[in-house]
Simulated scan of single mutants.
Amino acid sequence: MKSLPDRKINFHSLYEIVDAPIRWHLLRTALNMEVFGRLETPLSAADLSRALGSHAGNTEVLLKGLTAMGLLRKNGDTYVNTELARLCLCPQSETYLGGMLKSLSVMRTQGMENLEQIVLNGPPAQESGPDLENQSLWKEATSYLGAYQRAGVGQEAVEIARSLPEWPGFNKMLDLGGGAGMIGLYLVLAHPKMKGVLFDLPKVCENALPLIREYDSDMRMQVLAGDYNEDQLGEGYDLVWASLNLYYAKKDLNHVMAKIHQAMNPGGVFISYHEGLHQGRVSPAFHVLGRIAPAFRAQDFSFDQGEIADSMLKAGFARVHSKTIETVNGPIDLDIARKKGGNNGF
């Protein structure tokens, strides 16, 4: 006769794994139906159903699910956006992230429906990428990046840069591969005199410039179009900022790092804001899982912890200080490199 197992297992985390797709399906449906845009003021499920032309009962089920997720508040018979939904999920918000989230979901799950076959047989044949000549695609991507950068990332960059002892003396900065250019603009406008340059691909710069000018009437931020693997980056920079974009330099990171070093003034500071995988590339979970779909396609470009710092030293930077910080993008390795000269004491 067998004895009953004498153990108590906490397997609640397994339920959470099963529930994760449910949460996304609820959010995606609400985004597609523009639910949050209609709930800036309280509405009953019946009123919302009439406005949407949707099934009354299932509209209420959707609203209850969104409330359970913390995206709506229920008061009596009415529902209204929480602060997070108001700021990030309403299309009229400057920090609307709905489009970016839908795009990110596609990238993060591409091919996962055939995962068993991919594990058995190896990476699938490469699919054709997006049409890089499609102007509307570039405009949409830049718009998504702009909202994301305005939703806290730009302010986070200012907090980091302001903590540097060199901050008051900066005159010119480079936002390297900065997409919509909002991070560089936040840095420039937080400083009394510093001017800035956004360096990115030509079609990115073309779409970023109108966004920048909405906030930069004094034209303190300029754009310089190019490919940092091939082209010069300009010169005379006291501060260089690069966040979550140096993957395109992975084929020869040391070459790009040397160009960054060359473009900077003596005593200049280069801040790299990227993930750093460690423990055999199984941590942090946020970054490992967020990029596991491309890893199955042999496109795992995430950085190892210390990889960027090592490249900075090889490029000639005199000193590198590294630390891991908690951010809106999960755990991030902040590598701060200083070029010899100036008044930095080395």
Rank of each mutant, 00 (worst) to 15 (best):
G146L: 03
V158D: 05
E166Q: 12
S143K: 13
P165Y: 11
T142K: 03
A141V: 15
R162C: 04
S128R: 11
I160V: 10
G152F: 04
L132M: 11
L132Q: 13
A151I: 05
S163F: 03
E140C: 07
L164F: 10
L145E: 10
E166D: 13
N134T: 00
E133A: 15
W167P: 08
S143Q: 11
A161T: 13
Y148G: 01
Q155I: 07
K139W: 09
A151R: 10
Q155E: 12
V153L: 13
Q149M: 13
N134I: 00
L137V: 14
I160H: 03
Y144V: 02
G152D: 10
I160L: 05
S136Y: 06
K139C: 02
G129L: 00
A151Q: 09
G129I: 00
S128W: 12
E140H: 09
V153D: 05
E156G: 02
R162S: 04
R150I: 04
P130D: 01
A147Q: 05
E133C: 09
Y144R: 15
L132H: 04
P165T: 13
A157I: 06
Q149K: 07
N134H: 05
A141C: 06
W167Y: 09
W138K: 08
Q149V: 01
E127M: 15
E166V: 01
V158T: 04
L145P: 06
S143E: 07
K139H: 08
A141H: 12
S136A: 08
G129E: 00
V158C: 04
Q149G: 00
D131S: 10
A151G: 03
G146I: 02
W167S: 12
S128N: 12
S128Y: 07
E166L: 00
S136G: 08
W167D: 07
A161P: 06
G146D: 15
S143A: 10
E133K: 11
E140P: 07
W138S: 04
A161S: 10
Q135K: 15
W167K: 06
V158N: 06
N134M: 01
G146S: 09
E127T: 15
S143M: 08
L137Q: 12
S163I: 01
R150H: 09
E127P: 07
Y148M: 14
S143L: 05
G154V: 05
Q149T: 07
G152K: 09
